[in-house]
Simulated assay, not measured.
Amino acid sequence: MTAAPGVAFSYAYLYTLPSANISRVQELHAQACERLGIDKCRITGMTYNVRGPDDVDASLEVKLAPPLARAFGREGTHAVEAADGMLSSAAIKGTDVGTEIAAAESSASTLAQDGKALDRQISASRSDRQRAELTQQRAALESQRRDLAANVRGQRALLASTPLTFTYRAGASIRSLHATTPLMRAADTALASVEATVSFVLQAIAILFAPLLAIAVLWLSWRWRGRRLWRWLRGPEASD
């Protein structure tokens, strides 16, 4: 990607991994950027949000020297996979700024020639009114030239650094995605089935615990006090 002359690229990666590992992986990616040095990698943004035990998301934005961008993203993905995560999506976009720079420089050259022609006309003019009008035209050309120069500087800045964004979200990775044998895929499926069953049993216990506890308390209360109270309310039974 970086071999394309005049094209400014941007990289975006979305990862899914356990919520408990998100902050650690984000820190690993930030440290990897810092090790490259500020001339090759700069952190430009970072977020971390916790809304619940399994509702966590985060992001890391950096600007890299263009030749390092792809390798940095690849190593970042390896770190996520080592933390039981997975790459959910990746996007690489390119903008042809080289063509825009060439067009802006050509326009600037034309404006410079027009400016020189106006300078000659201003010097040769004998009329104050005409000289004032030509001076205004010359000022307008100079303003256009400055705008083009600023645009060229901005486009060159896009070529000088590559923005890369890591986005992290909590979730379960698909472990069998990279499995190479049917046995590994079957083992992953079996493990996922066991986890789902255990999770269902625990949730059922959590849901039924409160009602069962209430029933047990009522039954014990009846055994302890309820029968005596009932006998007292009924009074002594008549004998035959």
Score class of each variant (00 low, 15 high):
2 T>W: 09
4 A>M: 15
4 A>V: 14
5 P>W: 02
7 V>W: 04
10 S>I: 02
13 Y>C: 05
21 N>Y: 01
26 Q>M: 03
27 E>R: 12
28 L>A: 10
31 Q>G: 03
34 E>M: 14
34 E>A: 15
34 E>W: 06
37 G>L: 10
40 K>Y: 14
41 C>G: 09
44 T>N: 04
45 G>M: 07
46 M>Q: 15
47 T>C: 00
52 G>E: 04
53 P>L: 06
54 D>R: 13
58 A>G: 05
66 P>S: 08
67 P>R: 05
69 A>H: 12
76 G>V: 03
77 T>G: 13
77 T>Q: 15
78 H>M: 09
83 A>D: 00
83 A>M: 04
87 L>V: 07
89 S>L: 01
90 A>W: 07
90 A>N: 10
90 A>P: 01
92 I>S: 02
95 T>D: 11
99 T>S: 15
99 T>C: 06
107 S>V: 00
107 S>A: 14
107 S>L: 09
118 L>C: 08
125 S>Y: 03
126 R>M: 12
129 R>G: 00
130 Q>T: 10
130 Q>V: 08
135 T>Q: 12
139 A>D: 09
140 A>W: 04
146 R>E: 13
147 D>V: 10
150 A>H: 07
155 Q>G: 00
156 R>M: 03
157 A>L: 01
160 A>P: 10
161 S>V: 15
164 L>F: 11
167 T>M: 08
167 T>K: 08
168 Y>P: 02
169 R>F: 02
171 G>M: 06
171 G>F: 06
172 A>V: 05
180 T>F: 04
181 T>F: 08
190 A>Q: 08
191 L>A: 10
192 A>T: 13
194 V>C: 03
197 T>S: 09
198 V>C: 04
198 V>E: 09
203 Q>A: 15
207 I>A: 13
208 L>Y: 06
214 A>K: 03
214 A>E: 02
214 A>V: 11
216 A>N: 11
218 L>R: 09
221 S>Y: 10
227 R>F: 11
231 R>Q: 11
232 W>Q: 13
236 P>Y: 01
239 S>L: 06
